[in-house]
């Protein structure tokens, strides 16, 4: 492991300018749940794709800089912190764990993710939480168009504004928006904020370190009108 250096704090530093990404991912993916080597720091990510993907050990990986596509994809139990921005599909298909992006994220953040928590300190672009299947996502800034498209379950908290067609073709996921919504997608509607919703929102805001009250948010969800085919619409086909 030529590029990896152990520091006094017991953090292993891995320099992607000195060793290939495959070596980093193979090393991290090779760790088992009982590893004592739990702290990792990745330098010179330079927008590389698929950094720290497929992690299954409960380790903490900090990426010092901007990451490219699919960073921390398929994460299952690790904590991945990106001290920069991330490209398309950050934390896509996450199963569990935490992914925290200190900058902005590109499109399809948290796509199809089943579990865990994705925190974005900046803005997310289009299709944030597309087809999410149980993940919790907190975006402190704005999200782009078609966010939570076909979302199936989980919670998407948007502290800024949402772009066009929020929650289009939504199945069951809770969407909370503090700012404005440019437009709602098909079958997405405003819902009453239930006591259960409020508990979930308060918990997620606390976990993400957001200083806001649940009353400042509007809850959106599925109108459930697209679940079954309506024979009255047959003429449209």
């Amino acid at each position: 492991m030529s590029a990896a250096q152990k520091t006094m704090e017991n953090t292993v530093t891995f320099d992607l300018a000195a060793a290939p990404l495959r070596e980093l991912n193979a090393t991290l993916q090779g760790l088992d749940a009982s590893t004592n080597q739990t702290a990792w720091s990745v330098h010179n990510p330079r927008g590389g794709h698929a950094i720290a993907v497929g992690l299954t050990a409960p380790i903490a990986v900090t990426i010092e800089g901007h990451a490219g596509y699919y960073c921390a994809g398929m994460n299952d139990g690790a904590t991945v912190i990106i001290n920069g921005s991330a490209g398309t599909g950050v934390a896509e298909n996450m199963m569990s764990g935490l992914v925290h992006v200190k900058g902005d994220v590109s499109q399809s953040a948290g796509a199809t993710a089943h579990g865990g928590l994705l925190i974005v300190d900046g803005n997310a672009s289009a299709r944030c939480g597309i087809s999410m299947k149980g993940v919790n996502i907190v975006v402190k800034g704005n999200v782009g168009h078609m966010s939570a498209f076909m979302a199936q379950s989980g919670n998407l908290v948007i502290c800024g504004d949402a772009g066009e067609a929020l929650g289009d073709s939504l199945y069951e996921a809770r969407l909370f928006v503090k700012g404005s919504v440019q437009s709602l997608g098909a079958d997405c509607e405003v819902k009453e904020m239930s006591a259960e919703d409020k508990t979930i929102l308060v918990d997620l805001l606390a976990k993400a370190g957001v200083d806001a009250k649940p009353e400042e948010f509007t809850r959106y969800g599925s109108a459930r009108k697209l679940y079954n085919f309506h024979v009255d619409n047959a003429g449209a086909y």
Partner: peptide, 26 residues
């Protein structure tokens, strides 16, 4: 309008740069 294709911009006091991906700007 659907933003199918990627685009990343970087601006400093010295330049404005466009890249399909951040990697190109690194």
């Amino acid at each position: 309008p659907v933003a199918c294709k990627p685009a990343v911009m970087a601006e400093t006091a010295d330049y404005v740069a466009f890249g399909s991906e951040y990697r190109a700007l690194a």
